[in-house]
Computed example of a mutant assay.
Amino acid sequence: MLKIIQPRLSELSYRKKIMQDIETMSYNAHYNLDFPEYNNDTGCILFDESSWKSWYSKWINNEPTRFYAYLQNEDGNYVGEINYHLDSSSNTHQIGILIEAKYRGLGYGLEGLKLLIEKANKMD
């Protein structure tokens, strides 16, 4: 059973870890995203500590416009992240789910998606 955990600023090291993990981010490779922190070859995203404060203020405690949280398994390990946000340029709601590579294939993606949908419905 997964739990949704909103991280503290000091806990963003897990996000940094998965954003820079080649196996976890391989799905994201070769999309030609146009920002300097993105590595087109690996799909990894540099998430330097100098950006944490501004990122945190944008993503945390900004419901219903934005929601971000870690997924924590029954053993207390973070297994991934989920998010929800309103894209004002397209006026659409978008969701994201990322499961750390070593935890894939264990049902966490589906369970996390269900938790995210439940959370998004409460924000509506």
Results as ranks from 00 to 15, higher is better:
residue 22 I to M: 03
residue 80 G to V: 02
residue 39 N to H: 15
residue 30 H to L: 03
residue 111 E to M: 11
residue 109 G to P: 01
residue 119 K to Y: 08
residue 53 K to T: 12
residue 122 K to N: 12
residue 21 D to C: 08
residue 123 M to K: 05
residue 11 E to S: 07
residue 25 M to R: 14
residue 94 Q to D: 08
residue 76 G to S: 04
residue 58 K to V: 14
residue 10 S to W: 04
residue 107 G to C: 07
residue 12 L to R: 10
residue 80 G to Q: 00
residue 114 K to G: 01
residue 58 K to S: 15
residue 68 Y to H: 13
residue 100 E to Y: 02
residue 110 L to F: 12
residue 112 G to R: 11
residue 39 N to F: 14
residue 10 S to Q: 13
residue 90 S to A: 08
residue 60 I to C: 12
residue 111 E to S: 15
residue 48 D to T: 11
residue 69 A to T: 09
residue 31 Y to V: 00
residue 55 W to D: 11
residue 9 L to W: 09
residue 96 G to K: 06
residue 30 H to F: 11
residue 42 T to I: 05
residue 19 M to Q: 10
residue 36 P to M: 10
residue 55 W to M: 05
residue 89 S to P: 00
residue 69 A to C: 07
residue 123 M to S: 04
residue 96 G to C: 08
residue 50 S to Q: 14
residue 101 A to E: 12
residue 62 N to P: 03
residue 59 W to A: 00
residue 33 L to F: 15
residue 116 L to N: 06
residue 47 F to C: 04
residue 19 M to I: 00
residue 117 I to V: 15
residue 29 A to Y: 09
residue 16 K to N: 14
residue 100 E to L: 04
residue 115 L to R: 03
residue 3 K to W: 04
residue 40 N to Q: 04
residue 44 C to S: 09
residue 7 P to L: 01
residue 19 M to F: 15
residue 120 A to G: 00
residue 90 S to Q: 10
residue 109 G to F: 03
residue 6 Q to D: 00
residue 111 E to Y: 09
residue 17 K to F: 10
residue 23 E to A: 12
residue 4 I to S: 02
residue 87 D to K: 12
residue 17 K to H: 09
residue 30 H to E: 05
residue 47 F to N: 04
residue 82 I to R: 00
residue 41 D to C: 06
residue 45 I to F: 07
residue 109 G to M: 03
residue 47 F to Y: 13
